[in-house]
């Protein structure tokens, strides 16, 4: 089998007010089920080694992570190579329970926006309170960025990670580039 190729071949842009790059390929698994169930929480925390997220939270460590998508949907993150194996293990562990597990690693594109002005860039595109008090590392927000749905969280005080659909990866990259154009610091945060 061929080497997996991300939507933009890991394109990057570093001339603006924040560094932008496409990450991946990364492993992402949609898990729909009862997020309050102990069997589900144990299973996913064991697989990823991170804490189970509370409402609108994301815990991540390297490529592993768990993000709260809705009361019955969890995004399980891992390395791209692990995804199929994780799907198989989760499906097996959840057999007999009402749950749905699907590998969505290839359905998404992932971007990183990094630098002291990273908040500016996101706040130009998403109708979300991005003040340092309003949005902190560990929070996970599903919203829109300009005209497409997207989810993002902060890995640290200067780093955002954004997930969107693969088909709009070019649109998202172009958006981020424009929002980070040189000289466009807002100085609000």
């Amino acid at each position: 089998m061929s080497e997996p190729v991300t939507a933009l071949n890991n394109a990057s842009e570093t001339n603006g007010i924040a560094a932008i790059r496409e990450l991946g390929p990364l492993g992402m698994i949609t898990l729909r089920g009862d997020l309050s169930a102990a069997y589900l929480r144990t299973l996913t925390t064991k697989l990823t080694g991170v804490k189970f997220p509370d409402v609108r939270e994301c815990h991540s460590e390297g490529e592993n992570g768990l993000a709260w998508m809705s009361p019955d949907e969890l995004l399980v993150m891992c390395s791209y190579a692990q995804a199929n194996d994780h799907v198989a293990r989760m499906s097996e562990a959840l057999s007999g329970k009402h749950a749905l597990v699907a590998n969505v690693s290839d359905a998404r594109a992932v971007f990183e926006v990094k630098g002291p002005h990273a908040r500016d860039v996101i706040a130009k595109l998403a109708p979300v309170d991005l003040t340092p008090e309003g949005f902190t590392p560990g929070m996970f927000r599903r919203s829109r960025m300009a005209q497409v749905p997207a989810a993002f969280w902060m890995r640290d005080a200067e780093t955002f990670q954004i997930i969107c659909f693969r088909s709009v990866a070019q649109y998202m990259f172009d958006l981020l580039k424009i929002a980070a154009q040189p000289g466009s610091e807002v100085g609000h945060f």
């Binding site: 190729v5 005209q147 659909f165 693969r166 088909s167 709009v168 070019q170 172009d174 424009i178």
Partner: peptide
């Protein structure tokens, strides 16, 4: 705002 030229609207692309 930013919605002009190539990002006037999202264009979806297949692999």
């Amino acid at each position: 705002g930013e919605a002009r030229g190539p990002v006037f609207q999202p264009i979806r692309r297949t692999p």
